[in-house]
Design a protein around this nucleic acid. Sequence first.
DNA 1: GTAACCGGTATCCTTTTGGTAATTGATAAC
DNA 2: GTTATCAATTACCAAAAGGATACCGGTTAC
Lengths: 124, 124
Amino acid sequence: MHSCPGSASKSQHQAVRDTLEVISGKWKLVILALLLNRPYRFKELSREIGISPRILSKELQELEQHQLVTRRVCETRPITVEYASSDHGRSLLSVVQAMSDWGYLHHETIVGKKRLDDPSAQIA
Amino acid sequence: MHSCPGSASKSQHQAVRDTLEVISGKWKLVILALLLNRPYRFKELSREIGISPRILSKELQELEQHQLVTRRVCETRPITVEYASSDHGRSLLSVVQAMSDWGYLHHETIVGKKRLDDPSAQIA
DNA sequence: GTAACCGGTATCCTTTTGGTAATTGATAAC
DNA sequence: GTTATCAATTACCAAAAGGATACCGGTTAC
């Protein structure tokens, strides 16, 4: 099931590392998950996921450098900028899908644990 | 294809965030990718992926807290400790699989870009 | 003029992450 | 006694990641 336990998967963990290098961090996959549905404008993204403009700008630049998203300036009033997933970005769909599926299934578990660990959790 | 563009996926990106909260960082998925094949001992993991004992210990503890891996002390001489994926950990197989598949496919692209960005790359 | 919207930067700061090296305690080999 | 292995842990430190806030230049509405 899990590919191969020996030689053919020369180093599966290396492949995972390679992928992580591109989508590392707290935001890239979250942004991509949105852009896989439809294009978003800068402020729209910022509001939707609650990320500061500085970070968002940086993340989008990195996604652009890796050719995962495209940036298009729209000559509207006022000017808006539209970000969209590229074909290359869409090739990450299975990763995003797998992660959101898992997140849905284990939401309770994760949130539950968060509460247990959370020092701000009150024992009324 | 990508679930749903409107209401039913209340917030796919939230699910992605939930998942990221558990498997974030440079190492957790790499470790898990190995443990999905077979159990590993501490030093074995350390050597295989080239990670310092301090970090490895911390990562394994976090994975254990999230019930993704199990820890078993073996009464050998000297004592060894065996880490293995739990059932819950195996539920991340599709995520690991998706990421390693993507990594394989785009290895050249990633490594290529790394070289371009790398300041230590010499222009002889 | 003033205010608001847009995309984005600049500045400052805190937190997290990751790494090295040394050490510990138990056990065994020499 | 010395050295080695194993599984960590500790102390220290550097770098990266992330966040808050203010600000900029351009445009439109009032």
